[in-house]
Amino acid sequence: METFDHNALQETLSAMMPGAVFNTNPQFVEAVVPANDLHKFALELKMNSKTQFDYLVCQTGLDKNEELSVVFHLRSTKLNHSCVLKVITSDRINPEFDSVFDIWKSAEFFEREIFDLLGIKFKNHPDLRRLFLEDDFVGYPLRKDFVDNINIVQ
């Protein structure tokens, strides 16, 4: 069982990431970080001996109608605690975040998937192509405003 003090972890994280907003989440410590500081904070989270989030469990792109966000589920294999990191943008035309592929290698392909299905771009990503859909596919299917008149039954 994951036994760690949520409040203590939240305090550590808030000290490490000035500017982060903490949401109430019964399961994880959830921090919303400013998009500009994402790469810096992510690197800090991995490198800092108090947190050591070395395992990126899951990176999810999210579309909540008005805002696009990317959610990171992080876990530390050494300290056995986990947290959730979020970045949010309201720019729907050209959403862009920092890539974290150099911190967690698995991010490279999570980010390609997010780009493929949600159209969120990642700065400095080495190979930002569509992953699942064909290269000439128009639109980003996981967005809420995606309309596919042929295939989707409402």
């Binding site: 989440n25 019964p26 399961q27 994880f28 959830e30 469990v57 899951c58 999810t60 999210l62 909540k64 959610v71 589920h73 959730v84």
Partner: peptide, 19 residues
């Protein structure tokens, strides 16, 4: 809310993230 659950399949960690 947002819910996350991991299980161990024969191939590794399967996570389900429901918003």
């Amino acid at each position: 809310g947002e819910y996350y659950q991991s299980v161990e399949t024969a191939r590794g960690e399967l996570g389900v993230y429901i918003v």
